[in-house]
């Protein structure tokens, strides 16, 4: 594992060197994220001018939930997002060739090759903001809640990754699945709303087959509410299954990889 960390550090260093080369692109990335956050903020701000609560989430909980969602998204962007969406191109153009000839796990290589360095700016902005929001709210999480929240957020990022990677890996069968980015983006929008707004069959789906409710809502519940622990155990179970399926699909997909003519 230390070797993989050294490899990741080299990825990070290379990505940072490259990103700093293109200043406008780097700043543009931060600007796009800021606009994205503001849009969501105004969306929920408008909703709360008409209602007091969204299910069990009051206004404070929803805004804390939003910052948690953004943070999980920013972590995912930082580590994996750029890479997962590139898998389609790798397969279509045969660029997976050089990755598969390396003596390290190809899924890890593909998933972490390019670090989205500008996302670190978002993380550095969002984490203190989260602290301020919680501190100023009427919620008073204890140390255990905070520790479980950190773990649950990490599990949330892994669900985010596993779901995206699972969809992207379908390119091995489809030969070209360039719409995966959009499909994934649309589905992941479900994770940007508190789980309490979903009821009936949609809630069941979002807690199982398409576990978007487990990405940000569960960490929020663990941090703010007292019913979080059983959600956390459930979240770990679903994450393990999803990561296992993704790994299986990836390995089966590699057998279908046909490279591309030179």
């Amino acid at each position: 594992m230390p070797r993989y960390f050294s490899v990741w550090l080299a990825f990070f260093k290379n990505s940072l060197t490259r990103d700093l080369e293109y200043k406008a692109n780097f700043i543009g990335g931060i600007a796009v994220d800021s606009v994205y956050y503001l849009l969501y903020y105004f969306f929920f701000y408008t909703i709360f001018s008409y209602v007091d609560k969204l299910g069990s989430f009051d206004k404070e909980a929803v805004f804390i939930f939003l910052v948690i969602s953004f943070s999980i998204d920013a972590f995912y962007m930082f580590f994996c997002a750029n890479n997962v969406y590139k898998l389609n191109d790798y397969v279509v153009k045969g660029d997976l060739d050089f990755i598969l000839t390396r003596p390290i796990d190809a899924q890890i290589f593909v998933s972490f090759r390019y670090v989205n360095t500008y996302a670190i700016v978002s993380i550095l902005f969002l984490l203190p903001l989260l602290g301020i929001l919680v501190f100023n709210s009427h919620y008073e999480p204890n140390v255990l809640q905070i520790c479980l929240f950190i773990l649950s957020s990490a599990v949330g990022v892994s669900i985010f990754y596993a779901f995206d990677m699972l969809l992207s890996s379908l390119v091995f069968w489809f030969r070209n699945f360039s719409l995966v980015g959009w499909l994934s983006y649309e589905v992941l929008k479900f994770s940007m709303r508190p789980d309490s707004i979903y009821t009936g069959i949609s809630r069941k789906i979002l807690f199982s087959f398409v576990p978007m409710a487990l990405i940000s809502s569960v960490p929020t519940r663990i941090l703010l509410f007292e019913d979080g622990l059983h959600y956390f155990l459930y979240q770990i179970a679903i994450a393990s299954i999803l990561i296992g399926i993704t790994r299986l699909v990836w390995l089966r997909g590699l057998k279908k990889y046909e490279s591309a003519s030179s």
């Binding site: 080299a10 260093k13 490259r18 050089f98 390396r102």
Partner: peptide, 27 residues
């Protein structure tokens, strides 16, 4: 084993080759 393909690049386009070599050192 290693492969060189004349029509494909393994080096990162936007950074010096020495940086890619350091990456290979870790890999």
């Amino acid at each position: 084993i290693s492969i060189v393909m004349g029509q494909k690049n393994q080096l990162w386009w936007d950074i010096p080759a020495s940086e890619s070599f350091l990456l290979n050192k870790q890999i």
